[in-house]
Design a binder for these strands. Structure first.
Lengths: 155, 155
DNA sequence: AGATATAGTTATTGTCAATAACCATTGACC
DNA sequence: GGTCAATGGTTATTGACAATAACTATATCT
C-alpha cells in the first residue's frame, strides 16, 4: 500500500509545526483549493471532468457563440489549451464549432443538445459538490467568504 | 505578441457572463490561488522557488530532523516528489540529510546555515507577498477569511 | 497590393508529479 | 535465529498538461 493515495485529501496534522505557513492566506487558499479539486472528479462521477473543463462548458453555455480566444482570455489559458479544451467537449458531442459568416477565421462555439443536457446535470452535481465543500460554514459566513475571495481575485 | 503572457494574472472580464461560476466557492478559491501563485516567483525574486518548494523549506525549518516521508504526508506528496524537493534544496546547500543512528533507513533533514539564512529572507519576502495579495482587506476581514478557509481545509 | 494582426490548429518541448520497481533496514512472528 | 512483511528512500518510467513556436487562413490598414 502506497503512503499517499492518489487524489486523497491532505489532512492537517497538528503533530507537526507549520512555521509561518498557517498565517499565510496563500497557503490556506492552496489547501482549500486542492481539497476542492481532489473531490471534484468523484462528485461529478467522471474523473476526466476537471474544474477547468467544467468551467469551459459553463462559459460556452452562458455565452453562446463565444470565440475560443475569448475563452482563453477569460480563464488565462493559451490558445492551444483552449483548442484542446474544446476538442474534449466536441468529442463528447457537447459543443459544436460554427463558422462565423462575418469573420471566417473564427468559430462561434455553441452547446449541442447533448451539451445542454450535460451542462444541466453538471451544474447540479457541481453545486452539490460546492455545498459539501462548505457545509462547515453558515450561509452568512459563506457569503462573507465569497465576497472576500472575490475582492482578492478581482483586484 | 502572444494573447496571454506567461504567468500573467487572470483578469475578471465583466463583459462576459460567468453562469454559475461566480457563485461557486471552488471557483473563487482557484482564481485567488492562481493569482497568488502567479505572483509568487517574482515576489521572492526567483522563479524556481514555488510555493510548494518554499513550504518544504519552511517545514524543515520548523521541524528539524524531519523525515522525508513525513514531509510527503504533510503536503500530500508522493515519496519521489519529496525526494525531488529535498534534492532541489540540497543542491542549493540549504538542507542536509543526516543519517539517523536509531533508524538507518531514514534521514533526518536539517537546515544548513545557508538554509537558515535563505529561509529567513524567504519568510520576509513571502510575508510581504502575502500582505500584498490581501491589501484590499482590513485586518479584521483578513482574520475572518483565514478562519473560514481553515475551517474548510481542516475538515 | 503589401504589410500586419488575428483566430485557430499542429508540432514540439518542458515541467511536474505519480506509479512501479528496486535497495536497505527494521520489526514481527514462528 | 530465520523468514517475511513493512518502512524509508531513490531511480526509472510514464502520463498529464500546458506553454511556445511555427504554420494556415482570413481580415484589416495604408
Amino acid at each position: 500500500m502506497a503512503a499517499t493515495e492518489r487524489n486523497d485529501p491532505i489532512l492537517f496534522d497538528s503533530s507537526y509545526s507549520y512555521g509561518q505557513l498557517t498565517s499565510l492566506t496563500g497557503f490556506a487558499l492552496r489547501r482549500a483549493s486542492l481539497l476542492d479539486f481532489s473531490k471534484f472528479g468523484d462528485s461529478v462521477g467522471d474523473r476526466a471532468i476537471t474544474p477547468l473543463r467544467y468551467s469551459l462548458l459553463e462559459l460556452v453555455g452562458a455565452n453562446p457563440g463565444l470565440q475560443q480566444v475569448a475563452l482563453a482570455k477569460i480563464l488565462g489559458l493559451s490558445k492551444p489549451a483552449a483548442t484542446l479544451g474544446m476538442d474534449f467537449w466536441e468529442k463528447r458531442n457537447c459543443i459544436s464549432r460554427r463558422k462565423d459568416r462575418d469573420d471566417r477565421r473564427s468559430y462561434g462555439i455553441y452547446l449541442t443538445e447533448t451539451g445542454e443536457a450535460t451542462l444541466a446535470r453538471l451544474r447540479d452535481d457541481v453545486r452539490r459538490h460546492d455545498d459539501e465543500l462548505t457545509t462547515c460554514l453558515s450561509d452568512e459566513e459563506l457569503l462573507q467568504l465569497r465576497t472576500l475571495l472575490r475582492r482578492i481575485y478581482s483586484g
